[in-house]
Structure formats: structure tokens, C-alpha cells
């Protein structure tokens, strides 16, 4: 048993890794913010509106879209998104380009599409069409973000108050550190790796990191509760006891991690581009939760347990609280 005390011993290393990543993330967040690339915050949009002559024609809309797409390809323009709208008396097709898309190329594409649409021999000769392109800047809402951050923090605290009542204060404190760490670490990785996200995705990632952290730490705590009652654990030091429990909790923890990762990878892999932007980066909170529940948080908890064991031993020595189990909070 004594061979397995690496995790607790390496606590300064884990703390340093987390601190560096979180700090780097915070600095980059301040300097660059999140990469809202998935939302296309600043874009150029090419739009063709048309009347019912186009919408009722057989394949006319598709041909019009093909005309636009061929023209973009000829002008070296890369389409990010395509939206087809229905509206009273017709419809519209809109192509989204990056904010730095070449204006001259868009102008050339506009002229080419306009020419094709107004060609008297063309299939759109009788249609009422209009071609334009726009520069668009997204305005972001902030209330949902800060309310989300407060919600995650309060949710974690209240859940861990319950953990404190059921498993002991040390486990609750370690779990709280873990939940906050996981949320921040996840966001830091998203910022550092410049992962393209949607406006609300960072809050969701932080929330899922918190939920996953709670779930995984819950399994570890449950294992510790069972194990610490085992007479075989009586003679072990805090670090050894935590390490043994951590190892025995590997199965349920890895079970949760593998199944969650599999599900997110399935959804991210199978789904459309938009879903992929959410579900593949959603593997980050899963990975961070695994690291924290199996490595960082047990190492932190080992320190808490060491202190509480020392206090318990002291109480026992001086016979404080006669008849009480002096280490009730930690071994319950």
C-alpha cells in the first residue's frame, strides 16, 4: 500500500499545472477573449431575394443556389454558412463569409450573379430578384453570462453542502475546490487552444464541468466512505488511505468518463457542423473532470484528512468528547 502515495506527494505539481493553465487562460481571456468563431461574430453576408417565380419553379431555387456557389468558387470566396429563408411572396438565400472576406471578390460575385439573373434568356428573366451583400457585427448579451457564472458557483456550493453533511466537511471542501477548478480549467483550455465556440457555449462548458466534477467526486467519496470503514484502513496514513480509495474508485469514475466521452464523440462525430462545435469541445470538461477527480482533488483531500486525522488523534489522546467518535466527520 505504501508504494501508492504518489498522487498526494505530487500535489504541488498538480497545483502548479492547474495554476499555470488557469492563469494563462485568464490572461488570454483578458487580452483576446473567447474565440467566438463558431458564431461568426463579424461576417459578410451575400443575399439574393426572389419572388414566387423562383420558389414555384422546378429546381429553380437549387439552380440559383448553384449559380451563387459556382460564382463564389470562381471568385475564391469560402462559404461558412448557408441559410435559406421563406418569406411572404418569395424567399431568400443568404451565404455567410468571414468578416475579412475580400470586398472586391464579393462585388465581382454580386455583379456576376446579377448579370445571370437579369439575363433575358435566362430562367430568372421573369423573376423579381435582388442581390446584395452586407457587413454584419454581432451584439453580445452579458446578463446570461454573469448570471450563469453565479448559478454555477451557487449550484456547486449548495451541492457540496449536501456532500459535507453526508460525507464530511473535508470532502465537501475538496469537492468545491474541484468543481471551481474544473470550470475554470475547462474555460482556460478553451481560451488557450482558441477553440471556436458559440456565444453561450463557455457558460455551458463551465456548467457541465461542474456537473461532471460533482458526479465523479461523488463516486470517489462514496468509495472512500465504504473503504474508511474497513479495518484494513485503520493503520494507514491519510495519503495512503486516500490513494487506496482513489484506486478503488477508478472503475466507476472511468465508467462515467468513457461513456460520456463516447456519447459526446458520437454526437460530435455524427452531427452537423454546428453540433460538432459544441460536442467535440465538450470532451474537455470530461477530461478535466477525470484529471481532477482522480488526481488533483484526492491529493487536496489527503491534506485535509491529514489535518482532521491529527485533530482526531489529539482529541482521542486527551479524551475530548467522551463517548463520541472523534473523527466522525471524516470517516462517516
Amino acid at each position: 500500500m505504501s508504494k501508492r502515495v504518489q498522487t498526494a506527494k505530487l500535489l504541488p505539481v498538480w497545483v502548479a499545472i492547474s495554476a499555470v493553465v488557469i492563469l494563462a487562460g485568464a490572461i488570454l481571456l483578458g487580452l483576446l477573449g473567447f474565440n467566438y468563431g463558431a458564431d461568426v461574430p463579424s461576417s459578410k453576408r451575400f443575399e439574393v431575394t426572389y419572388d414566387t417565380v423562383v420558389t414555384i419553379g422546378e429546381d429553380t431555387e437549387e439552380q440559383l443556389q448553384k449559380l451563387c456557389e459556382d460564382t463564389f468558387a470562381d471568385n475564391g470566396l469560402v462559404v461558412i454558412e448557408k441559410h435559406v429563408y421563406t418569406m411572404t411572396g418569395g424567399g431568400a438565400v443568404e451565404y455567410v463569409f468571414a468578416g475579412d472576406a475580400d470586398m472586391d471578390a464579393l462585388e465581382a460575385a454580386k455583379t456576376a450573379v446579377e448579370t445571370a439573373l437579369t439575363d433575358e434568356d435566362g430562367i430568372y428573366a421573369d423573376a423579381d430578384t435582388s442581390v446584395s451583400f452586407h457587413e454584419v457585427e454581432r451584439q453580445y448579451f452579458t446578463e446570461a453570462t454573469w448570471r450563469g457564472a453565479i448559478a454555477i458557483a451557487v449550484g456547486a456550493v449548495v451541492a457540496l453542502v449536501y456532500v459535507g453533511v453526508r460525507f464530511g466537511v473535508g470532502k465537501a471542501l475538496a469537492g468545491l475546490i474541484g468543481a471551481v477548478h474544473d470550470s475554470l480549467f475547462t474555460l482556460a483550455v478553451v481560451v488557450i487552444c482558441r477553440i471556436p465556440v458559440f456565444g453561450y457555449a463557455p457558460v455551458l462548458f463551465a456548467a457541465f464541468a461542474m456537473f461532471i466534477s460533482l458526479m465523479l467526486w461523488g463516486f470517489v467519496c462514496a468509495k472512500m466512505r465504504t473503504n474508511f470503514k474497513d479495518p484494513a484502513y485503520v493503520g494507514l496514513s491519510a495519503a495512503e488511505a486516500v490513494e487506496e480509495s482513489r484506486v478503488s474508485a477508478l472503475r466507476p469514475v472511468l465508467g462515467v468518463v468513457v461513456v460520456t466521452a463516447l456519447a459526446f464523440a458520437l454526437l460530435g462525430g455524427l452531427a452537423t457542423a454546428g453540433m460538432r462545435y459544441f460536442f467535440l469541445p465538450a470532451l474537455i470538461p470530461v477530461a478535466v473532470g477525470t484529471y481532477s477527480s482522480l488526481v488533483l482533488v484526492p491529493a487536496i483531500y489527503a491534506q485535509f484528512k491529514k489535518v482532521s486525522d491529527r485533530i482526531a488523534a489529539k482529541r482521542k489522546r486527551y479524551d475530548y468528547g467522551k463517548g463520541k467518535k472523534s473523527d466522525k466527520t471524516e470517516t462517516a
Binding site: 450563469g148 448559478a151 449550484g155 457540496l160 453561450y200 456548467a207 460533482l214
Partner: peptide, 20 residues
């Protein structure tokens, strides 16, 4: 315990957070 802890976190998050 795991279900209750997660449900508590979810309830509080629901009560305070907005939209998505």
C-alpha cells in the same frame, strides 16, 4: 447521494441562470 447532490446543483443553476 450522487443523485441528490446533482439535483441540488441543477435546481440552483436553473433558479439563477438564464436562457440556454
Amino acid at each position: 447521494d450522487i443523485h441528490i447532490a446533482l439535483a441540488l446543483a441543477a435546481v440552483l443553476t436553473f433558479a439563477i441562470a438564464l436562457t440556454e
